[in-house]
Design a protein around this nucleic acid. Sequence first.
DNA 1: TTGATTGCAAATTGTTTGCACGCAA
DNA 2: TTGCGTGCAAACAATTTGCAATCAA
Lengths: 150, 150
Amino acid sequence: MTEHLRETSQRRVILEELGKLTSHPTANEIYELVRKRLPRISLGTVYRNLELLSQSGLIQKLEMAGTQKRFDGTIGNHYHIRCIGCGRVDDLRLPAMKSIDEAAADLSDYEILWHKMEFGGFCPDCITPRSKRGEIEILDIKKNIIGRKD
Amino acid sequence: MTEHLRETSQRRVILEELGKLTSHPTANEIYELVRKRLPRISLGTVYRNLELLSQSGLIQKLEMAGTQKRFDGTIGNHYHIRCIGCGRVDDLRLPAMKSIDEAAADLSDYEILWHKMEFGGFCPDCITPRSKRGEIEILDIKKNIIGRKD
DNA sequence: TTGATTGCAAATTGTTTGCACGCAA
DNA sequence: TTGCGTGCAAACAATTTGCAATCAA
């Protein structure tokens, strides 16, 4: 496995930019940010580093709802909340509940190691404008309650 | 939006095959099953129907960890558990807790509509063989606790 | 009859990889 | 000096889409 990561400028700037954010950007968003400081960096390098950094525990890779992966500069157990309106993802300051794992273990034959939870709803910026647009958005909401959306 | 879905043989067979399973197949797995009965069906049709069916609430689209979407023939609130060993996904018979949404709402500015939860661990088939293989698997587990894996 | 649905193939999107060169240790 | 890391471009995998033909209502 990975021995030790070298400190390259690309790696450092990726970590720095990610550390500045409280949001959970996609690989491409990180690429755009880093590119302002290192114009010659490639998207492939960003992907490779995000993967390595999350493997070594320095950042967190989120692969919950939605098609794109997102990355989290802060590690540790916490839940996430995604805005149905604009797609942004925030941390939820609800501490992860280990007892849930035990409750789940009692109900299944699995050896349970972790759980993750994601909430969906409208962020402050999207609550008002959305609800004014009517019909179509209502359907979107229903879609999200019943099934899942994108 | 969708008025009413016509009953085509493709649609019906997709629903039937999905209804037979307790697992949560990927679009491609469904395609392979349906193809046995309708050899000329195309993968695109399967994708289009899974999307429409989940929008109309007849099935459920799962987009949690991992890169591929999976589909669930049974609707209603329940959680899922994914095997780290073989990737299979089962239902967990733990009823969805609405109170969690309220607890989360108190902690954020979001208007919260739903939450979903996924558990990770080893299924009965993977517990023993996995733990015997040692080292590499241990790293995999750590990876899953700290960050996330694939 | 007519618009929803299909099969097919091409296009998109997000991500990964091979390779030769460059640079941290 | 070594072999990890990089930029670049091509390859991939999953999913979506345009289009003309087909079929359910």
